[in-house]
């Protein structure tokens, strides 16, 4: 079975992606590993894909998205990094792979993902919910159960499909929706690529919701998951092998939520400490902090979220300024400075 695993990210997440791809390569040396990047290398950073722990890079600009610059401008970094997952998985269905697996760059494997392939014998689409056990503590309900009602039942840091049948039909549908509606707009009912997938069990057959606690362990489900490290060297979650962890929000917020729900379950802190060491070792100082090539106009002025939202809401502006990143007279930036006020 030919398996393709991909992750979508920008250069500021290259360090995390390196840790993910190294873990994928360690556990699945025969899988094709693809980095889907919506970015351009920062000046002074010599990006050599051949020396990275993935097999190839696909640039978002090469996905054939119509009016790419205009489309890109409508999204912030998170929106676009999630939006391109749709076109890629749709195109990958015609690329020769039997199975395509998406993993967020801040996930890492701790054991092989072989059971996924077994499940894909009977199912075409695999999803991991944020929660597989309900909380009954007030704060945990607020932080986790209610939060996921806003952002989506399934965590789209992971999805796996067969490239035929319902898997292919899902990929086409997701592609179509994400090209037009992949925004962080919770009041409208949208949360990037993720909220859409609440529809998946209703819209598609052969969907498996993975209720094994070893998959997609993260701060949002630690309240109901307990880690243990056995004398045999295995790491388990509620007694099941730990397959992959989702290190959401590496930093103070992630620390607070992890501590709140891990309590004295110390292997959680061992794993976090390990991950921080790996990311630090994989960090290239030549990549500026928070680098994103598409975060600024051509003259270097930062693009504000409100400017992106305005552009995406106004068809006339999109028609008038097909390259909204441009600087100088007669550009969208010029219009913002003189007309928008």
């Amino acid at each position: 079975m030919k398996v393709l695993a991909y992750s979508s990210f920008t250069f500021s997440y290259l360090n995390r992606a390196r840790v993910l791809f190294e873990s994928l390569r360690r556990h699945h040396p025969d899988w094709e590993l693809v980095a889907l990047m919506t970015d351009e290398p920062p000046p002074g950073f010599d990006f050599d894909p051949a020396s990275e722990p993935f097999d190839r890079v696909v640039w978002a600009s090469d996905l054939g998205i119509p009016n790419f610059k205009s489309w890109l401008f409508k999204h912030d970094i998170i929106e676009v990094s999630t939006a391109v997952k749709g076109p890629f998985i749709h195109q990958a269905c015609a690329g020769g792979a039997d199975v395509v697996i998406y993993l967020d760059p801040d996930t890492t494997l701790f054991a092989p993902l072989d059971p996924l392939l077994d499940w894909l014998g009977d199912h075409d689409i695999l999803l991991t919910p944020h929660l597989i056990d309900p909380n009954d503590d007030h704060m945990a309900i607020l932080d986790n159960d209610i939060s996921t009602l806003r952002t989506g039942i399934y965590n789209l840091g992971f999805v796996a499909i067969r490239t035929t049948g319902e898997g292919a039909r899902f990929a086409k549908w997701w592609n179509d929706r994400l090209l037009s509606y992949c925004y962080d707009d919770i009041p409208t009912g949208l949360f990037v690529d993720q909220r859409w997938c609440d529809h998946v069990p209703a819209l598609f057959d052969k969907v498996k919701v993975i209720r094994d606690p070893g998959y997609n362990v993260a701060s949002w489900n630690l309240s109901r998951r307990t880690l243990a490290v056995g004398k045999d060297g295995a790491i388990t979650v509620n007694g099941y092998p730990l397959r992959f962890w989702h290190f959401t929000k590496l930093g103070p917020l992630g620390d607070v939520m992890t501590k709140r729900y891990a309590g004295d379950n110390f292997p959680v802190y061992e794993i976090w400490a390990w991950y921080k060491r790996q990311v630090a070792a994989a960090t290239d100082p030549a990549i500026p902090d928070r680098w994103w090539a598409y975060g600024r106009f051509a003259d270097g002025e930062p693009i504000e979220k409100a400017q992106r939202v305005l552009y995406r809401q106004r068809g006339d502006l999109q028609a008038a300024y097909p390259d909204p990143f441009a600087s100088g007279r007669g550009t969208f930036q010029d219009w913002l400075a003189h007309e928008a006020a």
């Binding site: 701790f110 490290v229 056995g230 004398k231 045999d232 060297g233 790491i235 061992e270 390990w274």
Partner: peptide
Amino acid sequence: PPPNSAACGICI
């Protein structure tokens, strides 16, 4: 445990 175990993998 075996040197290639998950436990050794996360150990300093």
